[in-house]
């Protein structure tokens, strides 16, 4: 017999982790191709709002997810255009993508603040009050299982398929890859849009299930935590998932601390995930001694004729 509180904690952990993980996995794919996209926060936000708006207007949940994912992907293509095609600074472009994404989603979502969803993303089974671990695991939201499939798929893709090896080659050494006849720009463009699509999925999960409503800036830094997770995971899908579970656990645990008898100001509680992210990054960097596993060409614009 398991403590009901523990079940709740586990449940919340998995939900929070799913949200972070999908966005992080998308960024991982983008970064593997050598493109740094700091716009995750903005992309999640765009996916969240467009998905929510579609869900309200059409009451078709599948269509809403599709719109959210696609619009984030299109939004990410701005970054791809500016950095891959036009070879401009990736840091600047990504930051502005975040700023633009937050502003755009606030603009779009202005009339949707406080609106109630009719349909939500549901869990796959009808167990509403799971009482053991198995039941928790089989009663998750459909996106949770999608995330698992994406994790396995991405890992397989990167390690075992020619496509994945080429993607990684481009991010490691774009010059050598180019001279081998690989399509550097095309690969990076696609990887950036795929990263956007993943962020979009994370966004629709946020507004269509995790908190089901829309307010301004509701991503509240999750995009940045996802970026940190990529570093945490050493650019490896499974380790990134592990990191997501750790962070999800913290996000779920902290508000519950009071029930375990800790007296903490709710305001201080709110900042702990950010503090812990910094701490984890520091510990990790010290532990790895500079060998982070980052793709070598990340952030470096590619032009064939450059020396």
């Amino acid at each position: 017999m398991i403590d009901i509180q523990l079940i709740g904690l586990l449940n919340a952990t998995l939900q929070a982790a799913t949200l972070l993980f999908i966005a992080a996995l998308g960024e991982l794919i983008t970064e593997k191709s050598g493109i740094l996209n700091l716009g995750v926060e903005g992309m999640i936000s765009v996916g969240a709002v467009t998905g929510f708006m579609t869900a309200i207007n059409t009451e078709n949940i599948f269509f809403a997810v599709l719109v959210g994912v696609l619009s984030s992907s299109v939004f990410a293509s701005i970054h791809a255009l500016v950095t891959v095609v036009l070879k401009q600074d990736q840091t600047v472009s990504g930051l502005i993508l975040t700023i633009l994404g937050l502003a755009l989603s606030s603009l779009l979502g202005k009339n949707y603040v406080g609106r109630k969803l009719v349909t939500k993303l549901e869990s796959v089974t009808s167990i509403t009050e799971p009482s053991n671990i198995i039941e928790v695991l089989i009663s998750q939201n459909i996106i949770f299982y999608v995330a698992i499939v994406l994790m396995i798929g991405t890992s397989f893709l990167l390690k075992r398929t020619m496509f994945g090896r080429r993607l990684e080659a481009v991010g490691e050494d774009s010059k050598s890859s180019d001279s081998m006849g690989l399509k550097v720009a095309k690969t990076q463009f696609i990887a950036t849009c795929v990263g956007g699509a993943f962020a979009g999925l994370s966004g629709v999960y946020l507004t269509l299930s995790y908190v089901p409503y829309w307010t301004d800036n509701m991503t509240s830094g999750r995009g940045w935590i996802a970026l940190a997770l990529v570093i945490f995971g050493g650019w490896k899908p499974y380790r990134t998932a592990l990191g997501a579970i750790l962070f999800g656990f913290l996000e779920a645990l902290v508000p519950r601390l009071q029930t375990y008898g800790f007296e903490l100001s709710p305001y201080i509680v709110k900042i702990t995930p950010y503090v812990i992210t910094i701490l984890v990054l520091v510990i990790l960097t010290i532990y790895k001694g500079g060998k982070t596993g980052a793709p070598k060409n990340i952030g470096v614009p590619f032009f064939r004729e450059n020396r």
Partner: peptide, 20 residues
């Protein structure tokens, strides 16, 4: 000292300070 990516750490301090 450790070479931790400053983009992420400076950004995260925003949320921390705002919380404070």
């Amino acid at each position: 000292v450790f070479g931790v990516n400053e983009i992420i750490t400076t950004l995260l301090t925003n949320y921390i300070v705002f919380g404070v």
